[in-house]
Design a protein around this nucleic acid. Structure first.
Lengths: 298, 298
DNA sequence: TAAAAATACTCCATAGGTATTTTAT
DNA sequence: ATAAAATACCTATGGAGTATTTTTA
């Protein structure tokens, strides 16, 4: 067994097709087929079931593929860790964030990062929690920023900060006069929510149920920007994270009010436990965010 | 890079000698030397410093060796997991235990295990906590039984039970009449302790300091059996785990008294998080110990 | 100068390629 | 009948061996 064999297996399992897998691995179909067979013989267990139309991974195969992916990732991380210069970062690193954070953080983070680590290019990616976690686990991203406690033994997390939510209401909503808002006020108007791929939605619902707030709800928007447009056009209300306020100030007809006691979400960085690069990137990002005016060279 | 290269590197790092490493790997010195050089070229980092008298592993090399060992262990576990029959155990498994547990548990455990898993041979090993943990981490043992909370991200643990200590005293010690003993009684006689490789020693000291018990102490014995002989010959006292009482009853001139509140230790099973075999063995052992008269086939 | 690692050179096992056959829908 | 994987067979890369050289304590 060698890493190449595992690469072949993982690729066939992903594409469910020997021919396409061979192409992806830049070898002939026969070569790949042969190596996978050899691997199965060596382990002594059938990993794939082949017919002329489809390839299905056996139950044991799935477990083997999962472990093979870990080994391949471990190999990459071995090389990365060995090459990582003392106290520096690689030439390029990839950072992800969930959609309700990314647009409000990336611009400033980019600036701060450039100042602190001028020789490293920071690439951004936006994805919902589930995909973000998967991307960090399989090594497509070195680190990710999200707002959900992680439950993956392969990942570590670094706390960033706790962010309060504000209630966004139409400009001439009666609550604007009152200024201070209580959780109970949330039940009086139509509460606009994001679609359910976004963790923000669950956090808002969680806050409501923690305070026994019921009321009309509508889940239509897939971004905070859309939520705010709906607040204005439909006259509903919504909770948005503090970070989103500055950019939404440009949107006339909306006011953002503090709620007391305040709903919050906890922003975290995740990275693979075993990834030196990931951990160092996470520390770098935290440094950029918590002390944007420091100095540190790369 | 392939697994063989990593094997060569790990072996050289362990033996600090190319020739001996080559012998251990059953290849010629030149073959091994060449592959290690190739690996260093591929990674682009010097891993070893060679002179004609010694081989030293560089700082980066140590990290790479550590990761290489993990990859090699991961490869073994991939094969083990794939070959592991549903709900069964391999032909042979290796279980370790610390010296203050092993002699009192292995005999009965062997019997129960044979009944529950007749087709699996259970091999035992005895080692102090530090060595036991190392052996489980590097895969020499599938699981281990100890009495210390583990602090290793590679390991998982399974609680077994909480075990009380008893105070062993000479037969005609005044406390024998009194029957019930308090922690404060421990300070009145010479307290005999194990040498400091044994965690039992720290646990006894911990109990004493938790109850502000001072007094004469002597750390000489390297086994509970020796402790008890000293109790009799020197007239001191000692705390021994409940499991050890039955076999020490054969020793005349010793009485074991309960202490109230009772000192205890928590017995646990450890195994590699990623080892299917280890986890299953740990569950099997727990099953054997908690329900020794059950039925389960292998 | 002696022990040990590196190098030179030869050999062969095995991964890879092309062409073809088998298999299952 | 056809798409796809397996097989046959040839080629060539690279890992292994032996012999020798270089290095440095």
């Amino acid at each position: 067994m060698n890493f190449r064999d595992l690469e072949y297996l993982v690729t066939v399992a992903k594409l469910r097709h020997f021919g396409k897998a061979a192409e992806a691995c830049h070898v002939s179909q026969s070569a790949l087929s042969l190596q996978v067979q050899k691997l199965e013989r060596e382990i002594g267990v059938q990993l794939l079931e082949r017919t002329n139309r489809s390839v299905v991974v056996t139950e044991i195969g799935k477990e083997v593929v999962r472990r093979a992916q870990e080994l391949l990732q471990g190999k990459r991380e071995l090389v990365d860790a060995a090459r990582l210069p003392d106290g520096r970062l690689p030439e390029t690193v990839r950072l992800g964030a969930i959609p309700t954070i990314a647009p409000y953080l990336f611009a400033e983070l980019q600036t701060a990062f450039r100042r602190h680590f001028p020789s490293t290019t920071l690439l951004f990616d936006e994805a919902v929690t589930e995909q973000l976690v998967a991307a960090v686990v399989n090594g497509e991203l070195e680190a990710g920023i999200l707002a959900t406690p992680i439950d993956d033994t392969l990942l570590d997390e670094l706390e960033l900060f706790e962010e309060p939510f504000r209630l966004a209401v139409p400009s001439r909503h009666p609550l604007v006069r009152k200024g201070q808002v209580t959780p109970q006020d949330l039940g009086k108007d139509q509460l606009l929510l994001l679609k359910d791929t976004h963790c923000l939605r669950e956090q808002v619902i969680g806050f409501c149920s923690a305070h026994q707030v019921a009321g009309k709800r509508q889940s239509a928007a897939s971004s905070i920007a859309t939520l705010l447009v709906l607040v204005r056009s439909q006259g509903g209300v919504t909770l948005i994270p503090e970070m989103a306020i500055e950019s939404s100030n440009k949107l006339t007809g909306i006011r953002c009010l503090p709620v007391e006691p305040s709903p919050t979400r906890r922003i975290r960085l995740i990275f693979r436990k075993t990834s030196h690069v990931g951990r160092r990137l996470a520390e770098a990002v935290r440094h950029c965010i918590t002390s944007p005016e420091g100095s540190k060279t790369t």
